[in-house]
């Protein structure tokens, strides 16, 4: 029982990271109906920026917030400078552009920071936290806390600020949005910025667990896809629920199903993705995108 609770909490911690990344994917999907295959690599690169900032002597939280700001600006720049040029291009061209971005980030990270695996610090204490008879890793609890704060902030932003409202409007109905004076292009760019910033938080939280290297996000991105699909790729709330569920599921399967273990981690995600697509392609909370004839 104690092990079960422990595993669930650890699962929620990784699940929170999946949820953040899934949310980043959903944000871009809602505005453009595209899935950014480079989202994971962007997060990885942000994490390297944080690592460099700490390396030159910045304290953790200063580096943390500076990285978020840099990622926000970077995301906006990528949309304005590159993605905007492909606004009217076929989906496949855009997918190729995303792949191009993925290669650029991965290769540049490998070039600047080498492919050697680096430890990444945690801002939370080393010691485990004991509640009752159960022990929890403090990084797990801390990461979960950080994720919750990010999600609440995003919710407040989109729900209650007029900029957030304008972003939602621009995603839903660009023509009408222009007619009320919203600069739709900038709203899309801001969406990319926010997605990059949220991804950066996810990267910084997960890097302590999986260590920092240019290839670290491959598997995590796959789980984020699974999470986004599970919750419904059109639903931000679904992405969060999906992320947490997938995180817990992954941990429980890893701990209690002996033949799966770590070696088939990605396969579990594959099975999950195909399972969701077969049984309920719109996910738990999504609107049906599939057009039946």
């Amino acid at each position: 029982m104690e092990i079960l609770v422990q595993q669930i909490v650890a699962g929620l911690a990784t699940g929170g990271i999946y949820a953040s990344l899934a949310l980043a994917l959903v944000m871009i999907y809602q505005a453009t109906e595209l899935v950014n295959f480079a989202q994971g690599e962007m997060a990885m690169f942000s994490t390297y920026i944080a690592w460099s900032l700490m390396n030159v002597g910045l304290p953790y939280w200063a580096a943390f917030f500076l990285t978020i700001a840099i990622s926000l600006a970077g995301g906006i720049l990528i949309q304005r400078g590159i993605i905007r040029l492909f606004e009217k291009a076929p989906i496949l061209s855009v997918v190729i552009v995303f792949i191009g971005l993925l290669l650029i980030f991965q290769s540049t990270a490998g070039w600047i920071f080498t492919y050697l695996i680096k430890p990444f610090p945690s801002p939370f204490p080393q010691a485990a936290v004991t509640l009752g008879t159960v022990q929890f890793g403090s990084h797990d609890l801390g990461a979960l806390g950080v994720t919750i704060v990010v999600l609440v902030l995003l919710y407040v932003f989109f729900r209650y600020t007029s900029l957030g409202l304008a972003m939602r409007a621009a995603a839903q109905n660009p023509v009408s949005s222009r007619l009320v004076g919203i600069r739709v292009g900038w709203m899309l760019a801001l969406g990319w910025g926010l997605a990059a910033a949220v991804g950066a938080v996810a990267g910084m939280m997960v890097a302590h667990k999986v260590f920092l290297d240019p290839l670290m996000m491959g598997g995590i991105l796959l789980y984020a896809f699974a999470a986004a699909l599970f919750g419904g790729i059109t639903s931000p709330g679904g992405a969060v629920v999906g992320g947490l569920t997938v995180g817990v599921l992954e941990n429980l399967v890893g701990a209690f199903v002996p033949f799966v273990g770590h070696e088939l981690k990605l396969t579990v995600a594959l099975v999950l993705i195909i399972g969701v697509l077969l049984i309920k392609p719109s996910g738990l909370f999504g609107k049906a995108v599939v057009t039946r004839v």
Partner: peptide, 26 residues
């Protein structure tokens, strides 16, 4: 210059109040 477009241009997933807030966005 405010346009009431062909097909009404409603933001169908937003509430009535949010639609009106958007009208005053600028």
């Amino acid at each position: 210059v405010a346009q009431v477009p062909d097909g009404r241009g409603t933001f169908v997933n937003l509430t009535v109040e949010e639609n009106l807030r958007l009208g005053a966005f600028t």
